[in-house]
Structure formats: C-alpha cells, structure tokens
Design a protein around this nucleic acid. Structure first.
Lengths: 196, 196
DNA sequence: CTCCTTGTTATACACGCGTATAACAGCGGT
DNA sequence: ACCGCTGTTATACGCGTGTATAACAAGGAG
C-alpha cells in the first residue's frame, strides 16, 4: 500500500517546502539540512523537492530570499506601530526591533549563519545577500533622512548603525551574551542620539 | 608499493592537522571540511586523524581554540606596537586591527562562521566560544579602564564597542561592503571618542 | 463512470562521509 | 645488522547524501 497524499497547487507546495527548509536550517543548522530532512519536515516524499526546485541549493536560495523579506516585514511593522510624525521614534523602533522576537531568535541566527557561509561559495546566494543588505540599508537611510536634524552623511551613519545592531543582535542570539535586550536597545538609542 | 612517509612528533602532527583544518574551513567552509579533505591538506592519510584526535569534532574544537589564540595574539601585537604611555592609542590600535589583515580576512570569517554555527549544537564548541569571547572582552575592558578619563561603566562600553567592531568586521570580510577599512576605523574612533 | 493528465511516491544508483581494522615501514635500541 | 615498537597507510564497512527513474493514484474532464 502506497502512502495516501493530496494534490496541492504549485504555490502551496513551494511555500511549504521553503518554510520547512527554514525550520530545518534553524533547528539542525546547515549541516543537518538535507533533502530528506526538509521533505520529512514538509511531510512529503524526498523526490518531490526536485519536482519544484532545480535542486536543494535552489531551494535554500529561495528560502534566503523569503527569510529576508520576512525580516524586512517585521521591521516595517515595528516602524508602522509608531505615529507618522515621530521620525526619531520610527527610526528607533526600526533599530530596537532587531533585539526582540521574531528577529532576535536563535533559530533565525542559525538560518542566517547558514546563508552567510553559503554566500561566499555560491554566487547565487551571494547575489541575494547583496540585494537583501542593500534594501535594508536603504530603508535605514530613508528613516535617518526623515529625521529633522539629519546628519550630513546618512550613508556612514547607516553603516555604523547597521554594524552596531548586527553585532548586538549576533551576540544576543548566540546566547550567553553579557548584556540584555534592553541594554542593547539603550546602547543603540545612545549612539543614535549622538548623531541626530 | 606503499606511500613513503616520515615519522613526526605528536606535537608536530597535531599542529599540522589543526592548521590544515583551519585552511579547509576557510577555503571550503564547514560543509566542505571533511576528514579526507583535512588529511589531504595536511598530506597524511585519513586514518591518521583518529590516531591523534577523538574524532573530527574534537579536531575542529581544538582548531577553534588555536584560531582564537591566534587572533588574540594579532590584536596584542597591534597594541604593543604603540608606546605604553599612549593609552588611547593602544585602545584604538586594538580596535582598528580588526579591520586589517590577518583579522579582516574572508577565510578567517569562513572559519569563524563554521564555529558559530557549531557553537549552538556542540556544547564543547559552545564552551570554547564563551571562553574566547570572555577573554576578548576582558582585554578590551582593561584597555578602556587604562584610559585617563575612563567611563563609569566600562562593561557597557566594551559591549557596544565589541558589537560595532564585530558588525563592521563581519560585513568587511563578507565582501561587497559599502564602506572601506579606513572608514570602519574612523567610525570606531569616533564612537570611542564620544565615550572617553 | 471512465479516461487521462500529472502531482506524488517508491526505489535505485553512485558517491562521499566518519570510523574501524589489519598490514606495512620508519627508526631507535641492542 | 637485526629486531621490535608504533606511527602510518591501505582497505573495508555501514550509512547518509543528492539525484534519476518508473510506478502509482488523485482528481478533473468528458
């Protein structure tokens, strides 16, 4: 007897596989994310992966893109929770959202680490990486420029702020960090106020 | 005919295997670092690895420790190149050395990424990670405290400086960074001056 | 109700992995 | 010059990997 199954639309199956891939990367890391593990997580047979994707590398690439937009969405939601007039508040919200769920999350870090390590090797992943980071920096520069007393060089400030936030986020998500999420937010705010 | 070989002391062989492991992690990433790849790089047969280490995981752990001390050594060398009286200069040297070789190096980043991803899974690696970071932070706090007008809370400043430096180093080493090593150094200096 | 398309499963293949084991050979002691 | 210890190699085993292929069945069309 063959296992029962239901036919799904292409989009549904692709999304399910992408979500399963992200869960595997977060749970088992890049090493433990195999075709069989992904398909088991998605509840389909291993062969189906290649029916929807060129190969496992292509699925991981699309998962990177999906994860990037998910993060961007969460950041935008944090910004939109602040009144449109409060430009400094919106910028601060964008920054401090990185220290709270769902962004400050060990599983998301594991996913991101896998992407970083692949970005050096796989050119396709590297391209996606550049796009995601460019978009994020653009968002940040926009929020900086919207502030009344914006600095002369928003690019360098965006660079510094991104680096600070990434570093804090990284150590916070790695665990055993010698500081709290609140302290991270306070540091970012202090740094921000010294500029604008 | 069997391949010729020479007998080496235990320390020599262990060091050679550790160095080969680091090169593999940097060149091929964690995914491409296998027992066979390491031993090919070291110029020995695959079986020899288990003659000197519990397994490949143990070798990677020792490689982490060795890499950590190598980085710490490079940072200390940068500090010692500055006159003992110039406390601010020594702190600045410690910080900016992170943006120059051999620390700002794609291969070192790849090695470090592998360690980060393993730190979550393997408790032994996680322990080594905590120790390395604690030492680094202690060094930084010492240099901060040595400055004449040290801030009230050197811990939080060390946290922030570490995060900023890590973030800048990360993106610099990932490549395609929208800023230069000099700009990174200038940013760190600016941040440093706003504190002390 | 039946047929046909095709999404899905099951199986197989070649390969690389980490490890275990036995045979070999370098090299110091005698 | 020979022996014996052991560092080193060679080979093999079981397993998991990504992918290719054929058999199957779900579900709409007629």
């Amino acid at each position: 007897m063959r296992q029962a199954f239901t036919r799904e639309s292409a989009d549904t199956r692709r999304d399910a596989l992408i979500a399963a891939c992200a869960r595997c990367l977060g749970t088992y890391g890049a090493q433990g994310t195999s075709v069989r593990a992904i398909c088991l997580e998605a509840g389909v047979s291993p062969g189906l992966l290649r029916h929807y994707f060129e190969g496992v590398d292509a699925l991981i690439a699309e998962t990177y893109r999906a994860t990037g937009t998910r993060v961007a969405f969460a950041l935008h939601a944090a910004v939109d929770a602040i009144a449109v007039g409060d430009n400094r508040g919106r910028l601060l919200a964008f920054v401090t959202a990185n220290f709270r769920p769902p962004i400050a999350d060990p599983e998301l870090l594991a996913t991101w680490l896998a992407f970083w390590s692949l970005a050096r090797t796989d050119p396709a992943i590297g391209k996606i990486h550049d796009e995601i980071y460019a978009e994020n920096r653009q968002d940040l520069e926009r929020l900086i420029a919207a502030c009344s007393d914006a600095p002369a060089d928003p690019r360098l400030m965006a660079v510094a702020l991104t680096a600070l936030v990434d570093g804090l986020w990284l150590e916070l998500s790695l665990g055993n960090a010698p500081f709290s999420a609140d302290e991270a937010g306070a540091l970012a705010e202090k740094w921000l106020d010294s500029f604008i």
